[in-house]
Design a protein around this nucleic acid. Structure first.
Lengths: 226, 226, 226, 226
DNA sequence: GATGAATGAGCTTTCATTCAT
DNA sequence: GATGAATGAAAGCTCATTCAT
């Protein structure tokens, strides 16, 4: 209905593949409370429903692909920093987390949804393949972490990243930000709800610092200086 | 096929309410990979579908109620220990976590689902009410934590519990245990997937210790001895 | 949207069950060239789509049920005649065939479709169950045939009926009547097509007489006289 | 991945046309329970999807063409025998039937499907053209039959062949062989289903003999000897 | 002539919820 | 209070066919 050209070259195909991912991402970001239908995604991309299925085996795989792209962005940046800088500190990691995970409106809602899907809808194969690929990135970044933060044994870097990621996701799910917005705004309602009404970013930083501190500092105290 | 009577006393009502929760819990525990339909729950409880709606406003609220009962169990135990014992240690908390959260087959899958639902299906009102009630319990337990682990400022106990809970849920969602089981078993497939293939309980203990260590120990070192 | 009452009694349910069958039959008879969607059937019955699924496990089973009702009508009549009359002749059988199979506009198109479905869409269980039930009727009628037409060995009656049925269906499928009607009428087109352009009823009678003649007459010659 | 060249000579075209038919035939024979998609046929032929449409107006016509080739093979053989031999007997016809129709795994499933299609999918024009061509062959073979089996009036030969064909197809559709195979095998299930569980080849021979006997023998008794 | 990317109509089925009985 | 028949929106996916390249 709308598309300009046929994607005949491999490069065009990649472009279209990405265009579909973009469309899905846009829709997800625009209304995080619902999950767009394939028809909507196709429409947003200016394509027909069937075309989406030329580029992705199914809907779940499409969502997973959007998520994977997000995660890749974070890991690429993290690995890049770990390789480029002489000294990487917790502050650096927090900064990366903020820029790539917390700030983009899409990352966290989608991550939560993807974890939810893993348990039900996603074809096992797709889930395993995803974890496989993520695992490799995690491995690489984890090794880099171990180089920068002394006192970690082999495998501790990966574990620390894993724990951090779990904390990021878990904390977000509990946060008010994860809530579908009330028409009257998120703060509507009678009284204060102190125990759950926190600022996600602030809280996350506290928790991550504690986790890293407990993992690294408790053993070597060496992360702040050589 | 069990009840089929009218519940006219308040006490009968409570009983039936609980019977529905029990039925839902049983179904959820029996097949954690899928989410039972209302018809199934009613059937399992020996009631008609419509009856469920006399006791719960909707399906999501029913699930949330099951979850809340689970969470209550944990908090009741935690608060009880905090009040009864002179010295509560991390080990005590880990033990409670294992007994009430990790071991029951129902808790974690349901918790994950509930968090997922919060973002989409649950009426905002129900979600807020749930968080309100949880917040109160959290508050109470958090204050108890602050009494036992010195060096915590006001609010730190609640935050620590919150972070712990986030870690528990997040780590579980990433774990192989959360995965729908492959016919050939979860370990089937060509190569090792070390970065994601971990034992949940072991990993969780490590992460929690690090988190508590980083929160408490880094400040006062006092949690292990008076 | 349209229905009067709820079917609460078993008897009401049977009625509604039949009403759906009727609706499907009507649709099938009205336009034999296409196969109505479940939505259309429901609409024709004045019910919602979902309601159809309360009475039939699926679409194929619904069609099969319509067909079975048709076949039942024929067999019931045949068995009744075989039991009531002293002398049953081929002419009687042909008359029954005409009245129950050839004349109703629905029978043959549906039968053809059902045989087609057996090879692809129908759940094997449903197909077997159908054949089981038909087999019993066939058995009973076949035994009756053997009583009336001497010289048949045990099993020959069933076989003869089977062959007859095959002839009825096969001949119909080849006949012009099975053709979707051309806008300009079935006879449109340039020249005569003598080899396929025959009158189904006449042709069928000839073929059945030959078949029965060859089966019975060749052995006993006794069917024509006491 | 076989051809991929341009076919510019009439001869090349015929070759490619046949290659497509071959591919379709192979696919149909390999899995008679399902009907291959155009994409699969093209793939099997080593061509692109669009190319199939250069040689056939549509999918139905393609299937019909495969079927027609099959039928042609039978009629060619029959006509050849009728012209070559001095004496053709029923046994000869049965032998031809077995060799060309019953034994090839493709013939009967496809024939059944084509008859099914006639009633729904095939463009009327294609169906009529097919019948026209078949009619000519039938005419020729029918006349030959009349020469060999005395006592047949003009037109009886064609009718007999038509009836035979109807019997062949109809009986096959009812037979267990037409059934999609149950995982546990076609004979799985509790009890016997005697009325439908027969051997197709044996049954067909009986029925054909009876039909021919009733058509020919009943009039002249002359088919076995001059 | 050949290709294969794009199309989009079409269909079954599920299930939370309602409400007549 | 309890029942369960009825509802109907919602959505993913296939595949024959077209047509730009």
């Amino acid at each position: 209905m709308a598309i300009r050209q046929r994607a005949m070259q491999a490069q065009d195909k990649q472009q279209r593949h990405d265009a579909i991912l973009d469309a899905a991402a846009r829709l997800l970001a625009d209304s995080p409370e619902r999950i767009a239908s394939v028809a909507e995604v196709a429409d947003e991309a200016g394509l027909a429903k069937g075309t989406v299925y030329l580029y992705f085996p199914g809907k779940e795989e499409l969502l997973l692909a959007v998520h994977e792209r997000n995660v890749d962005g974070f890991f690429d940046a993290l690995i890049e920093v770990l390789e480029r800088k002489d000294q990487v500190t917790i502050a650096d990691v927090l900064a990366l987390t903020g820029r790539h995970i917390v700030e983009p409106p899409l990352f966290l809602p989608l991550a939560a949804r993807c974890f939810g899907m893993m348990g039900q809808g996603v074809p096992v194969e797709a889930a395993l393949a995803f974890k496989q690929r993520m695992g490799e990135r995690l491995q690489k970044a984890g090794t880099g972490i171990e180089r920068h933060f002394h006192g970690l044994n082999a495998g501790d870097g990966v574990a620390l990243l894993r724990h951090s990621y779990a904390l990021i996701i878990g904390l977000w799910q509990m946060s008010p930000a994860a809530q579908a917005q009330h028409p009257a705004g998120p703060m509507a309602g009678p009284g204060p709800r102190p125990a759950f009404d926190y600022d996600y970013q602030v809280e996350l930083d506290r928790a991550l610092v504690a986790l890293w501190d407990g993992t690294i500092g408790g053993r070597s105290r060496s992360y702040a200086a050589p």
